[in-house]
Design a binder for these strands. Structure first.
Length: 594
DNA sequence: TGCGGCATAC
C-alpha cells in the first residue's frame, strides 16, 4: 500500500565501497554465466585474491546461479577458512535456483564445518526439502532449527509450514502455523495455499476467512491462493467477492492474479466471464492461455478451445505439455477426433514435446468417447511406448462402458484389476459393465469380492452454494435442517417430471454397493437433493442453479435434471468430476458426450 | 543473504 511518509531510499546508501574493487566488478560483469565466471576466477587467482572470502562468496554464488553447483562447492570447500555466511548464502542460492539437492549439500557442509548457523540457512534448506518432498530430512532440519535456537523465528516457522504442507502433513503444518506469534501475511498465504494444494479447498477458505476476522490485510498472493481454492471448491460467491476487492483496491494485476481469475471463473462455470478477464489482461503467459483453453474444454466448447489454441500458436507464447493436455482433453470432450489427432502430431513434431500418460490418456479417451474403440486399442498398441499405465486402461474401460462393448470391457477391467487390485473404482466399473449386460450373478460376485477385501467405493456428494454457504448432500442425506421440505419438494418434482415423460434409468442403481445406500436407491441421490434444494430456495429467481459433484454424475440424475430444467424452466449447471453440464430446456450441453 | 502466488488426463 502507498506510504505517504517521506523516507530515504535505503538502496542509495547500501553501496559498499569495498564491493567496488575491480575484481568484484569483474565478477558482477560476468554474471551468472559459467564461462565468463571461470575467466574471472582465473584472474582472481593470478591477482592473488584466491583466498579473499567476499570474492569467493560472490564467485561461488554466481556459479550456483549459473547452475554449476559442484563448481561452487569445490570453490567453497577448497577455501582455507570458509565462514558461515559463505555456506548459508550458497544454501540459499541453490534452493532459490531450483537445485534442492545442492542446497542440502551446502547445508551439510555447514554442519560438518561446525560453523554457526543463521536463520537464512534454515529457511533455505527447508525450502529445498519442501521442493524434494523430503519429509524425513525436513524433520531433521526442523529439529536442528529448534536445537540452534531458531524455533520461534517467524521466517523459519513459515518455511517449515511450507515444508510440511508440501509433504502432505497438513496437521503438522497447521500446528506450526498456529504457534507462530506474529503471523505475517506470508504465513497466512502459505497456510491457505498449503490446504489448497492438498485438495482441501474448504479448509483453505476457512483460513482466508480467519485471516479476515483477524484483521490481517491480504496481498495479491492471498487472493491468488484464495481464488485457486474457490476454483477447486466451486465457491463462486467468495470468488466474486475476492474479484470485487481486487478491483476496488486497484491491486496490480500480476500474471498470477490474472490467471487465477480466469481459472476461478472457468472452474466455477462462468466460462464467458473467464474469457472477459482473459481479454482484459495486459499480461498473459502460457498458464493464462492454458487455463482458458482448459476452461473451454471442461465446458464441452471444443471448437472454442481449438480456436484459442490456434490464436495462441499465432500470437501467444509457445504451448507446453500442459497446454496439450488441455487441448487434447477439450477434443476428447467435444468429439473433435481429427483436431485432436493433429494436435497430438503437432505437439511432437513442432514443439518437440514428449507425450506423457495424460496425453496418451486423452487420446484414448478421445477415440473411445467417439466410439472408435478399435482406433483406441490400436493407438494403445502402436503409439504408447512400453506398458500402458492404469490411467490409459481406465480411459479405455470408460469407453467400453459408454459404448456397451461388454467383452472388451471385461477384458480391460480384468487387466486393470490385476494392475491395481486395491483400487475400488475399477471393480465398480466392472460391476457396472456386468449390470449393463444383464449378468447379475457377476455383479454379485464383484460386489462380494469388494466386501471381502474391504474395498469401499468413494462416497459421492453434491454441493450447492446459497448466499455464500455451501450445503452438502450425500445420498439420502437427512441432516439438513430443511430436510422435510427438501424431500417433499423433490417428491413433487419427480411427479412432475414423470408426467413430462421421465422414466428412471434403473441401470444406474444396480451398482450401488453399500448396504445403507441400497435402501435409498436413485431417488435420493445427492445431486437430486441438491437441485431440489436449489430450486426450492430460488423460487422466482432466474439465476442458474449451480451444483458441484465430486464424482461423475450418474445416468439417471443426468436424465432427471434434463427434465427438471424443462419443467421448472430453470438453467441448472452441474460440475462433475470431469466436466460441466449445462442443463436448459430439457437438454444438456454435453449432448450425451461425457 | 530469508518465508508465499497461476494451468493438466480418467
Amino acid at each position: 500500500m502507498a506510504n505517504s511518509s517521506i523516507q530515504f531510499e535505503p538502496s542509495s546508501f547500501s553501496m559498499n565501497p569495498h564491493h567496488r574493487s575491480p575484481e568484484y566488478n569483474a565478477l558482477l560483469l560476468a554474471g551468472p554465466r559459467l564461462g565468463p565466471l571461470k575467466q574471472a576466477h582465473a584472474r582472481l587467482v593470478v591477482a592473488g585474491y584466491a583466498s579473499s572470502l567476499p570474492l569467493t562468496t560472490k564467485l561461488a554464488t554466481l556459479a550456483v546461479a549459473a547452475g554449476a553447483a559442484s563448481y561452487a562447492h569445490l570453490l567453497a570447500v577448497s577455501h582455507p577458512a570458509p565462514d558461515s555466511f559463505l555456506f548459508c548464502t550458497l544454501t540459499r542460492a541453490a534452493a532459490h535456483r531450483g537445485l534442492p539437492a545442492a542446497a542440502l549439500t551446502f547445508y551439510r557442509s555447514l554442519l560438518t564445518a561446525a560453523l554457526p548457523f543463521s536463520s537464512f540457512a534454515f529457511t533455505a534448506v527447508a525450502k529445498a526439502c519442501a521442493d524434494l518432498s523430503a519429509l524425513r530430512v525436513g524433520m531433521a532440519v526442523h529439529a536442528h532449527a529448534i536445537l540452534f535456537g531458531f524455533g520461534s523465528d517467524g521466517f523459519v516457522q513459515t518455511a517449515l509450514v511450507v515444508l510440511y504442507s508440501k509433504c502432505g502433513q497438513l496437521a503438522v503444518a497447521r500446528k506450526l502455523f498456529d504457534a507462530i506469534r506474529d503471523r505475517s501475511v506470508v504465513a497466512w498465504n502459505v497456510m491457505i495455499s498449503g490446504y489448497e494444494q492438498n485438495g482441501l479447498a474448504e479448509r483453505a477458505i476457512e483460513v482466508y476467512k480467519e485471516m479476515q476476522m483477524a484483521g490481517e490485510a491480504p496481498d495479491s498472493a492471498t487472493f491468488v491462493a484464495t481464488l485457486s481454492a474457490c476454483a477447486q471448491a466451486g465457491a463462486l460467491d467468495l470468488g466474486r467477492e475476492v474479484e470485487r476487492r481486487i478491483v476496488s483496491e486497484r491491486m496490480d494485476m500480476s500474471v498470477f492474479l490474472g490467471a487465477a481469475l480466469v481459472n476461478m471463473y472457468a472452474r466455477c462455470g462462468l466460462v464467458n466471464k473467464a474469457r472477459e478477464w482473459f481479454d482484459k489482461l495486459q499480461e498473459r503467459n502460457v498458464v493464462t492461455w492454458t487455463s482458458m483453453i482448459a476452461g473451454y474444454g471442461m465446458h464441452g466448447h471444443g471448437h472454442e478451445a481449438i480456436k484459442l489454441f490456434h490464436l495462441m500458436r499465432r500470437e501467444g507464447p509457445p504451448p507446453n505439455d500442459v497446454t496439450f493436455v488441455a487441448v487434447l482433453s477439450a477434443c476428447a470432450h467435444a468429439g473433435l477426433v481429427s483436431e485432436g489427432r493433429d494436435a497430438f502430431a503437432t505437439m511432437k513434431s513442432v514443439y518437440g514435446l514428449i507425450p506423457r500418460a495424460e496425453h496418451y490418456c486423452s487420446m484414448v479417451d478421445m477415440y473411445g468417447r467417439a466410439g472408435l474403440l478399435d482406433d483406441a486399442m490400436q493407438f494403445i498398441h502402436d503409439s504408447i511406448p512400453g506398458e500402458p499405465g492404469p490411467e490409459v486402461w481406465t480411459a479405455m474401460l470408460g469407453a467400453c462402458k459408454m459404448h456397451k462393448n461388454f467383452n472388451l470391457g471385461v477384458e480391460v477391467a480384468e487387466r486393470l484389476i490385476a494392475l491395481e487390485p486395491e483400487n475400488p473404482s475399477h471393480r465398480v466399473l466392472l460391476s457396472n459393465i456386468y449390470a449393463l449386460s444383464g449378468k447379475m450373478n457377476h455383479v454379485e460376485k464383484v460386489r462380494n469380492t469388494m466386501i471381502k477385501r474391504r474395498l469401499k467405493k468413494q462416497i459421492g456428494y453434491s454441493l450447492i452454494e446459497i448466499g455464500g454457504i455451501a450445503h452438502l448432500f450425500r445420498m439420502g442425506e437427512k441432516s439438513h435442517p430443511q430436510t422435510r421440505d427438501i424431500y417433499q419438494y423433490l417428491e413433487e418434482l419427480i411427479h412432475r417430471i414423470t408426467d413430462a415423460g421421465y422414466v428412471p434409468e434403473t441401470d444406474s442403481v444396480l451398482h450401488e454397493l453399500e448396504e445403507e445406500e441400497r435402501e435409498f436407491a436413485l431417488r435420493y441421490h445427492g445431486e437430486k437433493l441438491a437441485v431440489a434444494f436449489g430450486l426450492m430456495m430460488s423460487a422466482g429467481s432466474t439465476a442458474p442453479i449451480r451444483i458441484i459433484k465430486n464424482l461423475r454424475i450418474c445416468g439417471d440424475c443426468h436424465l432427471a435434471i434434463k427434465y427438471m430444467s424443462a419443467v421448472e424452466n430453470q438453467e441448472i449447471i452441474v460440475r462433475d468430476k470431469h466436466r460441466f453440464h449445462h442443463f436448459k430446456d430439457g437438454k444438456c450441453s454435453c449432448q450425451e458426450y461425457w
